[in-house]
Amino acid sequence: MSKAVTDASFDADVLKADKPVLVDFWAEWCGPCKKVSPVLEELGQQYADQVEIVKLNIDDNPNTARTYGVMSIPTLTVFKDGEPVQSVIGAQPKSALAKFIESSL
């Protein structure tokens, strides 16, 4: 299970992380978010040494979503050295998400 982050923990868990972090901005009611979740779990295991994958529920944590301009979900954003470096919006196939992660490392 991917680690859940919150508005309160985002700075420590994502911005100050010692390796890249992929943040899955999602919500409980979002169908495409539910489809992409198991794919992210698999990729999280596959790339465990290179990237951490975390989830941020935008309904429970609106401030972080607002700060990074998340308007549609799922939005997947890779943060590196405290900065967002790349985002993709919408459910993607596993192969596309793997390429997305690799291109962000």
Rank of each mutant, 00 (worst) to 15 (best):
V78T: 08
K34F: 04
D81T: 04
Q46Y: 03
G44R: 14
P38M: 06
S87F: 03
A17Y: 06
E42M: 06
R66Y: 02
A4N: 08
E42C: 09
P74N: 12
E42I: 12
V23A: 10
K34N: 08
I53N: 11
I101H: 06
C30Y: 07
I89Q: 13
L76P: 12
S103V: 04
P74K: 09
K19D: 07
V78F: 06
F79W: 04
S2E: 04
Q50E: 13
I89E: 05
A4S: 09
I89C: 10
K94E: 02
P93F: 00
D13N: 01
T64Y: 00
F25Y: 15
A27M: 12
W29K: 11
G69D: 01
V21M: 03
K16C: 06
A96N: 11
L40N: 12
F79D: 02
V85D: 05
L22C: 12
I101Q: 01
Y47A: 10
V70Q: 03
I89H: 12
D81Q: 15
T77E: 00
G44F: 08
K16G: 06
A4R: 05
V23M: 01
S2F: 01
P84M: 05
S104H: 07
L22Q: 10
G44D: 11
A4I: 02
V70Y: 00
L56F: 00
F25A: 09
G31Q: 03
D59M: 03
F100H: 06
Y47D: 01
L56T: 04
C30D: 07
T64K: 06
V39S: 11
S37W: 03
A8F: 00
T77P: 02
F79I: 08
G44P: 14
A98N: 06
C33M: 13
A8N: 06
Q50K: 14
K16D: 05
A65F: 01
D24V: 07
D18G: 15
P74G: 11
A65S: 11
E102T: 12
A8G: 00
G31S: 07
D13W: 05
S95Q: 13
P84G: 09
T67A: 15
V85N: 08
G69A: 04
S87C: 01
A65H: 05
L22V: 07
G82F: 01
D24N: 14
T6F: 04
L105H: 05
A27P: 14
T77V: 15
Q45L: 09
V39T: 14
D81W: 00
D11M: 02
V36S: 15
G69Y: 01
W26Q: 10
P38S: 10
D7P: 10
D81V: 02
P74L: 09
Q86C: 01
V39A: 10
S87Y: 02
A91C: 13
S95C: 02
